[in-house]
C-alpha cells in the first residue's frame, strides 16, 4: 500500500507538469491584453513598457520555465516560511498578480478561509445528510420516505445553484427576512453572538451547495446499499442470528461504502468548481469569486495559479480515492 501510494505520487508529477503546460498554453493563446483595461489616454510606448515590466517581453519557454520555478519551488518555500518562521528564498521573485502587484498566493490564502467555510461546510453537511438518507431509502425501498427522497433528489440534481441560490434569497431574505442575502466576509467570530451571525449568513449558501451534494451522494448511497442488501452474504448474516442493526450497519454498509467513498473523494474538487457560481450569487469573496474577477481583469498569473490549484486538487483527490479504495476493500491489493 505504501509503495503504491508513493508510486502514485510520483506518477502525478509528470501529470501535473503536462497540466501546467496545457494551462499555460491555453491562456497564452487566449486573446486579451493585460493593459486593455488601462485608460485609453496612455500612449502605446508606455503600454509596451508596462508589458515589459510584467515580464511579457521574454520568449514563451523562458516565461513558462520561470513560472514553473516560482510555482513549484519559490511558493512552497514561502509556505514553509509561513509555517516555521524560516526565511528561505527571501529575495526570489514570486508569482505576482498583475492587478494588485502582490504575490498571488498571499491573496489566495486570504480568500481560502471564506471558501473553505462555505464550500467545505456545505460538503460536510451534504454528505452527512446524504448517507443516512441513502441507507434508509435503500432499506425501505419504495416506502413513502424513499419516494420523497427520490423526488427531492431529482430537484437537487436538476436545479442549478444559480437558480436555487436566487430562489432561497428571494424566499428567506427578501420575503421572510430571516437571513442576510450578502455574505459579510469581514465579520469576525469572537463570541457566541457573532458566531450566531456567522451561522445565519452561512446557512443559505451552505443549503444551496449541500442540496446538490445531498442529491448526488444519497442516490449513490442508495444504489450501492440496494446492490448489497440483495447479496448472499447479507442472508448469511441474518442466518447467523445477527440483529438487523448489525446486518445493515455493519455487514452491508461496510461493503456499500466502498464505491461511495470514492465518489465522495472525487466530488471534492468538483464542489470547488460549483462554488464559483454560488460565491457569485451570495457575494462570498472566496476563491471562486477571485477567479472570476481575475479572468475579467486578464490577470493571467492569478488565473493560471487558481486553475492549477484546481488541477492539483483533482489529481490529489483521485489519489486519495484510490488509496481509500484499497484501504476499504481487502480484495484490492496494489502490489
Amino acid at each position: 500500500m505504501l509503495t503504491f501510494t508513493l508510486r502514485r505520487v510520483l506518477i502525478s508529477i509528470p501529470t501535473l507538469l503536462v497540466i501546467a503546460f496545457a494551462i499555460f498554453m491555453l491562456l497564452e493563446l487566449a486573446p486579451g491584453d493585460p493593459t486593455a483595461q488601462l485608460p485609453l489616454t496612455i500612449p502605446p510606448e508606455v503600454r509596451e513598457q508596462i508589458r515589459q515590466s510584467l515580464g511579457l517581453g521574454e520568449p514563451l519557454p523562458v516565461r513558462f520555465g520561470k513560472w514553473l520555478i516560482q510555482f513549484f519551488w519559490v511558493e512552497p518555500l514561502h509556505i514553509i516560511n509561513g509555517i516555521f518562521g524560516t526565511d528561505f528564498a527571501e529575495g526570489a521573485q514570486r508569482v505576482l498578480s498583475w492587478q494588485t502587484r502582490s504575490p498571488v498566493m498571499d491573496i489566495v490564502w486570504q480568500r481560502m478561509p471564506q471558501t473553505l467555510w462555505v464550500v467545505g461546510m456545505s460538503y460536510i453537511v451534504g454528505v452527512a445528510i446524504a448517507l443516512p438518507i441513502g441507507i434508509y431509502s435503500a432499506y425501505k425501498q419504495y416506502s413513502v420516505f424513499d419516494q420523497a427522497g427520490t423526488f427531492v433528489s431529482m430537484i437537487g440534481y436538476s436545479v442549478p445553484p444559480f437558480f436555487s441560490g436566487v430562489l432561497v434569497i428571494v424566499i428567506f431574505s427578501v420575503k421572510l427576512g430571516w437571513f442576510p442575502s450578502i455574505y459579510d466576509t469581514t465579520h469576525v467570530v469572537n463570541d457566541w453572538d457573532s458566531f450566531v451571525v456567522q451561522l445565519r449568513q452561512m446557512i443559505m449558501p451552505v443549503m444551496v451547495l449541500a442540496l446538490q451534494t445531498t442529491a448526488q451522494i444519497s442516490r449513490f448511497m442508495r444504489a450501492s446499499m440496494l446492490d448489497n442488501l440483495g447479496q448472499d452474504y447479507v442472508r448469511t448474516a441474518r442466518a447467523k442470528g445477527m440483529s438487523e442493526r448489525s446486518v445493515v450497519l455493519r455487514h452491508t454498509l461496510r461493503n456499500s461504502m466502498i464505491p461511495v467513498v470514492t465518489v465522495i473523494a472525487l466530488g471534492v474538487p468538483g464542489i470547488f468548481g460549483g462554488a464559483i457560481i454560488t460565491e457569485q450569487v451570495f457575494k462570498v469573496n472566496g476563491i471562486g469569486q477571485l477567479l472570476i474577477t481575475a479572468i475579467q481583469a486578464n490577470d493571467l498569473p492569478m488565473v493560471q495559479t487558481l486553475t492549477f490549484i484546481f488541477a492539483i486538487l483533482i489529481v490529489l483527490f483521485n489519489l486519495i480515492a484510490d488509496v481509500l479504495y484499497g484501504v476499504l476493500d481487502p480484495r484490492i491489493r496494489y502490489d
Binding site: 448472499d232 452474504y233 447467523k240 476493500d329 481487502p330 480484495r331
Partner: peptide, 22 residues
C-alpha cells in the same frame, strides 16, 4: 434471532458469495 445461528445452522448453495468480502 436467538434460534437462527444458535439452534439451527444454515449452509448455503454458493460458497463464493455467501461470505462477507470485507
Amino acid at each position: 434471532r436467538k434460534i437462527r445461528g444458535r439452534r439451527i445452522g444454515f449452509v448455503f448453495q454458493d460458497p463464493m458469495t455467501s461470505l462477507n468480502p470485507v
